[in-house]
């Protein structure tokens, strides 16, 4: 491999990185993080755009975390927790749902397309569901024209 090719590769890579959307995902430790692991164990292919942050419970997520991620340049933010009624901490995900629903409605007021934010429920055994959540969300983010 000559120097020229390396340069070209680096340039391509540079271009690609510019295009690749980066998505921050907050996952609860008990259901969705384990679900994402389950998808990995089953080798379920996913786009590379996600950067996952593990939190104990979706109820731990301060809506400001989501805004912080956007302000740091995230193209999308995804939150996922245990299914309603299946929270490891009994009802943390119900609090999450209220807070995040309000947040979603609030996003357009600060100039963020609310399609860039989504919250989902994925259990520890739903590896396949996690895969489809990621694939669909990345598709959605990529379909939004950059502003």
């Amino acid at each position: 491999m000559g120097l020229k090719e390396i340069d070209k590769g680096m340039a391509d890579n540079q271009e690609k990185t510019d295009q690749e959307a980066k998505i921050v995902a907050f996952l609860c430790n008990w259901c969705s993080y384990a679900g994402s692991d389950a998808a990995g164990t089953a080798r379920l292919r996913q786009p590379e755009n996600l950067r996952i942050i593990r939190v104990p419970c979706s109820g731990r997520i301060d809506p400001l975390f989501v805004l912080k991620a956007f302000s740091m340049g995230a193209d999308g933010v995804l939150v996922s927790g245990c299914h309603p009624n299946d929270c490891h901490y009994t009802d943390g995900n119900f609090y999450a749902r209220r807070r995040l629903e309000v947040l979603k409605e609030y996003l357009p007021f600060i100039g963020i397309d609310k399609r860039r934010f989504s919250y989902q429920w994925v259990s520890a055994s739903e590896g396949q569901k996690w895969q489809s959540v990621v694939v669909n969300f990345v598709k959605r983010i990529n379909s939004i024209e950059k502003t």
Partner: peptide, 21 residues
């Protein structure tokens, strides 16, 4: 592993993600 190498085929992108992680 579970959230990177096992779910991606593109070595460059997977490495970039690993660096981020």
């Amino acid at each position: 592993r579970e959230q990177d190498s096992w779910i991606h085929d593109d070595r460059e992108k997977a490495t970039e993600k690993a660096v981020d992680l």
